[in-house]
Design a protein around this nucleic acid. Sequence first.
DNA 1: ACATTACTTGGTCGTTTTACCATATGTCCA
DNA 2: TGGACATATGGTAAAACGACCAAGTAATGT
Lengths: 105, 105
Amino acid sequence: MNTKQKAVLEAKANVLKALGHPTRLWMAEQLEDGEKCVCELAESIDADFSTISKHLSVLKQAGVVTDEKRGKQVYYKLKVPCILKYMPCIEAVIKNKAAEHAALL
Amino acid sequence: MNTKQKAVLEAKANVLKALGHPTRLWMAEQLEDGEKCVCELAESIDADFSTISKHLSVLKQAGVVTDEKRGKQVYYKLKVPCILKYMPCIEAVIKNKAAEHAALL
DNA sequence: ACATTACTTGGTCGTTTTACCATATGTCCA
DNA sequence: TGGACATATGGTAAAACGACCAAGTAATGT
């Protein structure tokens, strides 16, 4: 494996890692039907504002979202919405696991 | 958000997190066209055998792969192959980022 | 100009991850 | 049965992560 392939792999892993946190995944899902400002997202999350801001920053760094300041507020939106098209497959994974777990009982 | 929704979110994030490491993502990609034993995977990775084994264990825990022992070897395979169908979208994310970065120069 | 609102950034700290080493376990072959 | 091979597991130290608090910035209202 050469250097470039490694870099691509790392970048892809980084995107997945960014989505690999409950709060950030939730945020991405919230943005599915359009942009939201930080304050709107914050309403439903029980966490410090700084924590929320940092999670959004991780998503931005990974290239999952973009932000735009308009007035006092900052709006975030999905940059590549296909990201969420994937969720049914992820759900299949966990349903699978749940079914197996149930089978043990 | 109720308890169940939180649990689902956490489970989904966990699957994404499992794939969110270069080595593990590479492993999953290697399994795209069929099962492989640990030794086959190990050939291309410059890491301790124990490290490799633990990465595979993470993927197994997440429900991404299954393992089966046959003789001396343990074979791993993708449990839910649709996982990889998603990669083109992930690649779009990083291409996007690369394009922007290039635009800055 | 000053306070207020909406974030972001820096610092700290406890927790989790990851990599390696050493050691076990299970399987086959002589 | 004993040794070699394939893999897993436990321990440990370094690095990364995540949450909070405090302080900083930028736009708006008074």
